[in-house]
């Protein structure tokens, strides 16, 4: 299939990008294009203009900023998963990014692009939500920070305003004692997850002290499994953890689609959360 016509600009600076974005309300930001190009080809999107920000240096690379890692929005998945800064500072991001799509797509697709796409079935939104990442958005009017909990507004809808560009995401470092796992359940290697569970847990003396759980594809937005998180506080590996993870589907509103019905997704969320928590906690 063939995309419909659109204009294209590749601004040299963010300021120029803001001006281009302001020129027309059907203008869209083009990052790596790995989500957008298929939509254009299937003629499911008709932007009037694409503003290509992929090469803007301010949006590139992952940087250690002390208490957090700043991942520039245009850092490719491939760069993210190989970045020593990411692997050291927020290993869950590296783990999950390595499961995104396939190698060729990871070379082009970007961290910020897939987050701004706000697809609840994406791997990264659930991860950033679990880690309490902070989205940094800039516009002609200045910069603002949006906590992950407020970033994902609805299905394919983020809190970014017209004219705003996501410049990157701050991922807080969790420090020592934390373990991580991303459990992705899909029918084929390149299929979207039916359910994905991103987990970070801090464990001492056999018990979980703190757990953070992000769920992919369990609602129109990524969700935190808050009930399970609280139930896991102080839970010991074994029946207690199992029971706590039984709460993982509380408050979810999973979709019904070709690949699964809601009740099955809820079931999976419980099973996969249990597995992810155990793995993250280093259980044998």
């Amino acid at each position: 299939m063939i995309p419909a016509q659109f204009d294209y600009v590749r601004p040299d600076s963010l300021d120029q990008a803001f001006r281009e974005l302001a020129s027309d309300e059907d203008t869209k930001v083009l990052a790596g294009g790995q989500s957008l190009l298929p939509l254009l080809r299937l003629r499911l999107a008709y932007p009037s203009k694409l503003v290509d920000v992929a090469r803007l240096p301010e949006l590139a690379g992952a940087h250690d900023r002390g208490d957090h890692v700043f991942v520039g929005a245009m850092t490719t998945h491939d760069e993210v998963m190989r970045s020593p800064v990411v692997r050291e500072g927020c290993p869950l991001v590296a783990l999950a990014t390595a499961t995104v799509a396939d190698p060729a797509v990871r070379h082009r697709g970007t961290f910020g692009g897939s987050l701004a796409h706000a697809d609840p079935a994406g791997d990264l939104p659930a991860v950033v939500l679990a880690l309490d990442g902070v989205f940094v958005a800039r516009s002609a009017g200045g910069e603002r920070e949006i906590p992950a909990a407020r970033f994902f507004v609805d299905y394919l809808e983020s809190a970014l305003l017209p004219g705003e560009i996501l410049t990157g995401v701050k991922i807080p470092k969790l420090g020592d004692g934390w373990g991580f796992h991303y459990e992705k359940f899909h029918r084929t290697a390149q299929a979207w997850p039916i359910v994905g569970v991103a987990v970070a847990v801090r464990r001492t003396n056999g018990a979980i002290q703190e757990a953070r759980i992000g769920l992919a594809n369990m609602a129109p937005t990524p969700l935190r499994a808050r009930a399970a998180e609280s139930a896991l506080q102080g839970a010991e590996l074994g029946d207690q953890v199992r029971q706590a993870c039984g709460e993982a589907a509380e408050g979810t509103a999973p979709p019904a689609d070709l690949h699964a019905q809601p009740d099955y997704r809820r079931h999976l969320a419980r099973v996969l959360t249990h597995r992810a928590v155990r793995t993250a906690a280093g259980a044998p």
Binding site: Y8, L30, G33, Q34, L37, R41, D78, V105, H107, R108
Partner: peptide
């Protein structure tokens, strides 16, 4: 190969 890395050329615009 696009700048030395694999890419799906049906999902890249020529301008990119």
């Amino acid at each position: 190969m696009l700048d030395g890395k694999s890419a799906k050329s049906c999902s890249v615009l020529a301008v990119q």
